[in-house]
């Protein structure tokens, strides 16, 4: 355990980097996932087809393949940015397929009469979704969305494996392989770091769930 105490600042910095990846990827994936869910329930066939294609591609490709493409494919197309940016975007795009499906299941749980009434007073598709359907869908979206977000936090380790550098996973690898520290304590430290993020995230989601349940 001495290795954790001696190197606590490395683990802390790793925790910070992982948090950053998750925060940016989380925000991006919520926006993209909501948009794709909107496409999947849109009255226009091309939009629905686009949404379905998006989900099919990102839900069925292994995350490692998506990240591999972001790491080597995108730079080969001549687009340059740090791998922090590419890795975060890759993680967000991959997760957006699951976010979309969580949101879509919530939308489907709202009675179709609500959408019919909204359309009947002259609200457009976007207004119907934003003002009537999504506020009522939130309650049933939160639990599956929580699982998706926690999976994403853990998946950030795979983005780390592609060389974002400095995140929890990278700290673990560096300590155990490069510096030859004993592997079990190092991994325990890494696991602890992820738990420090995921457990409060789960508690926060439980709190939000209770909040929206009261606000009907």
């Amino acid at each position: 355990m001495q290795v954790l105490i001696d190197n606590y600042h490395l683990y802390l910095r790793g925790l910070g980097t992982t948090l950053q990846i998750c925060l940016y990827a989380g925000l991006l994936t919520l926006v993209v996932g909501t948009f794709i869910a909107g496409c999947r329930v849109a009255p226009l066939t091309p939009l629905r087809a686009f949404g379905t294609a998006w989900v099919t591609v990102f839900r069925n490709c292994p995350l490692a393949v998506v990240l591999f493409f972001m790491a080597f494919g995108i730079p080969a197309l001549g687009i340059n940015a740090s791998y922090f940016v590419f890795g975060t975007i890759g993680l967000a795009l991959y997760t957006s397929a699951f976010v979309c499906e969580a949101i879509r299941s919530g939308i489907n749980a709202v009675s179709p009469g609500q959408a019919e009434a909204a359309r009947s007073v002259g609200l457009g598709f976007g207004q119907t979704l934003r003002l009537v359907i999504l506020p009522q869908a939130v309650r049933s979206i939160i639990p599956p969305l929580g699982s998706v977000m926690i999976a994403m936090i853990k998946n950030s380790a795979i983005a780390g494996a592609f060389g974002i550098g400095g995140d929890l996973y990278a700290v673990g690898i560096r300590q155990s392989s490069a510096q030859g520290e004993e592997i079990i304590p190092v991994l325990l430290g890494v696991a602890l770091g992820y738990l420090i993020i995921t457990i409060p995230a789960g508690l926060l989601l439980g709190y939000v769930e209770r909040k929206v349940a009261i606000a009907r």
Binding site: S111, G113, Q114, E116, A117, A118, R119, S120, V121, G122, L123, G124, V132, P135, Q136, A215, R216
Partner: peptide
């Protein structure tokens, strides 16, 4: 589309199940 939404605004509809916005 937009034109249909505008037309629906001029046509009032009352449903069997009321369909008031529950929230």
């Amino acid at each position: 589309g937009r034109a249909l939404a505008e037309l629906r605004a001029d046509v009032g509809m009352v449903f069997q199940q009321f369909n008031l916005f529950a929230h």
